[in-house]
């Protein structure tokens, strides 16, 4: 998708510049932004490495496994059609916890395996089951507790208090996730 989106952004940007007479600024804009990407990444290197370092300790200490136990009652309620000891539940739990902790690289493989297991329980193979819809909507409602990269970006641009958005971020994440569950449950009941 980015293949076309990226080109469209550039073509449209230059076309509009031609009409509005901002062509001279376009060269500067392009070059400066490219340069800026590197400066941002230098700040990111510090913050991101710190976070992945800490999270690696959590991973080795088996945090995903122990936290997923606590998640069981919620998952049982969200996925009533999935047997409690089915492997799908393990993968869903891992995906949710990994997303929650911001471990994107651990979340995606677990999520794909969860889909595969859910598909094995699915009666109509082309049609998403209720459990699949719930899992996808829940997953896409944003589960990440702390957006460490946003904090890094804010630091880079000289925010006086880069972490002040963590609290509001957690609250709004709760709202979007609650809306996701409510929607999926209501749609299940209606179908």
């Amino acid at each position: 998708m980015l293949n076309y989106l990226w080109g469209a952004m550039i073509f449209i940007g230059i076309l509009v510049a031609a009409f509005t007479g901002n062509m001279a600024e376009v060269t500067n804009g392009a070059v400066n932004s490219a340069k800026e990407a590197v400066t941002v990444c230098i700040t990111m290197l510090g913050v991101m490495s710190m976070w992945t370092g800490i999270m690696k300790i959590g991973e080795e200490a088996g945090i995903i496994r122990s936290m997923s136990k606590g998640l069981r009652p919620l998952l049982k309620w969200l996925f009533p059609s999935v047997p409690e000891d089915h492997r799908a539940m393990d993968h869903i739990a891992t995906n949710v916890i990994a997303n929650f902790l911001g471990l994107g690289w651990a979340a995606t493989p677990a999520g794909l395996m969860a889909m595969e297991e859910l598909q094995s329980l699915n009666k109509h193979k082309e049609r998403a089951s209720n459990a699949m819809c719930m899992f996808m909507i829940f997953n896409m409602s944003s589960l990440q507790l702390v957006s460490i990269n946003i904090i890094a970006y804010r630091t880079q641009y000289g925010s006086a208090n880069p972490s002040e958005i963590i609290g509001p971020g957690i609250i709004t994440t709760l709202v979007s996730t609650a809306a996701a569950i409510a929607f999926a449950k209501a749609a299940e009941a209606a179908s």
Partner: peptide, 27 residues
């Protein structure tokens, strides 16, 4: 959505898109 559903070849995604959009708009 496209990555996850494509991996299991599900084409009828039913209310998934509407639900995900609703959650994001709520956020």
């Amino acid at each position: 959505m496209s990555v996850y559903f494509m991996s299991v070849k599900v084409t009828k995604t039913r209310y998934t898109l509407a639900g995900a959009l609703a959650a994001n708009v709520a956020g």
